[in-house]
Design a protein around this nucleic acid. Sequence first.
DNA 1: AACTCGGGGCA
DNA 2: TGCCCAGAGTT
Length: 211
Amino acid sequence: MTPKEKIVLLKEVLGSRYPNPKSELNYENPFQLLIATILAAQSTDRQVNVITRELFKVAPDANSLSRMELDEVKNLVRSINYFNNKAKNILEVSRILVNEYEGRVPDRRAALESLPGVGRKTANVVLSNAFRQPVMPVDTHVHRVSNRIGVVKTGKVEETETELMKIIPEAWVIDFHHYLLLHGRYTCKAKKPECQNCPLSFVCDYAQLHS
DNA sequence: AACTCGGGGCA
DNA sequence: TGCCCAGAGTT
């Protein structure tokens, strides 16, 4: 089975396993998507959802967040990983957006990655989700799952990103990010992958090797 | 390439 | 208790 054929199968199988892949982290508002994604680094979606629900009541846009005190922001995000750094980062981000981008989220990679706390993955989430640009966000889950199944054979995440974009239709990028992410988180885990519960094991290079 | 950051969920 | 996590930044 070719990588492209596996992609078609993945969409079908994981699509039914993880219905409604559009998680609560996907906000219609680009600002809220950006902030939520910064907060999400090395944290769980549930942690982030609890925090953003309260945070965006107080600060739904860049202008309102930029006027908050650091201690106030810290208190709102205190239950998340690296909350000291992240509070500082999202406050700084909001002030940069207000001062340099008229309060809006930029739609260019260089501008996004220059923001504190925004790396390549977060930038790609914003570009693909909010601005519909054809870029694939690749984190450790997407990287690991893609390689185990055998849709790519790459050593570095950057390679995975470009290789996946060659075989995934642009319109599928956002859904695939969530499919591979959720599958990596809950089934195709780094340490103890549950191949016996995996609906893809029959086409998976890793499962064939470890069964 | 290796290290730091570091709260909270879960076994 | 110990292990590990929807990355990014620094050295």
